[in-house]
Amino acid sequence: MRYIVVGAGAVGGAIGGRLHEGGRDVVLVARGAHGRALREDGLRFTTHEGTRTLRLPVAEGPEEVELRPDDVLVVAVKTQHTAAALAPWAGRPVEGGGTAGESLPLVCAQNGVENERLALRLFRRVYGMCVVLPASFLRPGAVTAACGPYTGVLVLGRYPSGTDDTAHRIAADLEDSAFRAPVVADVMRFKYAKLLGNLNQTVEALCGPVAAGTPAAELAARARAEGAAVLEAARIDHVGAAELAALREGAVEARPSQDGERALGSAWQSLARDAGSIEAAYLNGEFVLLGRVHGVPVPVNETLLRLSEAAAARGLAPGGTAATDVLALVDGAV
């Protein structure tokens, strides 16, 4: 199997780098300054073992890849970019007949729960992946994933449900490449649980680290409480926080980064890179949508969504908003 990683940032770069080191055939897909750096200088990949440069094939888009029947597409872009990223791949011919959308497996290695729905419109064989993989991408050509003894836990299953031989083959390759990769028939239960945890990300991006006992922690807890109430009202099942945490225990533990780089979550990194957009519409925004559909008030998530999207549009640095100010806005809106 060859893995074509569409979006070789923090998560995609870490998965692609580890699969390459595990002896698998990998193509990274990246554009702009990051793509140029990967092509010219290789992937500067930092894990708890150290930093090295990996030389992998790099493509700017589908027109540079001749697709084969044994290819697996791994999508790791932010959700706001998913539709635009997938559309050019779906109709691409595959050697031997058919198109990518008709025959190739596509794995959504992404946060949120909307990507799989978007993918299923274009691809017949879609797999969800609950990604527990602390990683950072702050500079073109460089990815850090410093946890150990495993780089991450990647829970895999068919979408909307089920398992198959392809899922088990992908999982076996990941397990040979420094990941834990359980295959489950109910992957979306894990993804909804992770989505609740991802609500911390917007608080981090706006207010900085969510440390116990701080206003930021109170803000994050209130966002998660709203999210839990929304999922209950919508009758959406999800695994418990303890079960999700158990996947990491003894497997994915923070290790000192050899290059001294310290980054917070994905949303924080988007502001730090001045990426121009943020994923909040598919994190907080998922609960805002469901709350409005099911009549559950969600003032915390509405406020975090509004402020984070404004911060991304204005190019604000992460951590510049006081959590007390956000709490005051929320309480004034209730």
Rank of each mutant, 00 (worst) to 15 (best):
I4G: 03
I15E: 02
G17M: 04
L19D: 11
E21K: 05
G22P: 05
G23Q: 04
V27Q: 10
R31P: 14
G32R: 06
G35S: 05
L38D: 04
L38N: 09
L43S: 04
R44W: 13
F45Y: 14
R52F: 12
P57T: 02
E60N: 09
G61E: 03
L67F: 15
V75P: 05
T79M: 14
A84D: 14
L86T: 15
G91N: 04
R92W: 15
V94G: 13
G101L: 08
E102R: 05
Q110W: 02
R121G: 04
L122W: 09
G128F: 03
V132N: 12
A135H: 00
T151V: 14
L154K: 05
L156K: 11
R158F: 07
H168E: 14
R169C: 08
A172D: 08
D173H: 09
A185E: 00
D186G: 04
A193F: 02
L195T: 10
L196C: 07
G197H: 07
Q201I: 00
E204S: 05
A205E: 14
G208M: 13
A217S: 13
E226H: 08
A229M: 03
V230G: 12
R235F: 10
I236P: 11
H238G: 15
R248E: 15
E249A: 15
A251M: 13
S257F: 02
L264N: 12
G265P: 01
W268S: 15
D274G: 15
G276L: 02
L283T: 06
V298M: 10
V300I: 11
E302T: 15
L305Q: 08
L305H: 03
A312W: 06
G315V: 07
A317P: 11
G319V: 01
A328K: 01
G332H: 11
A333W: 06
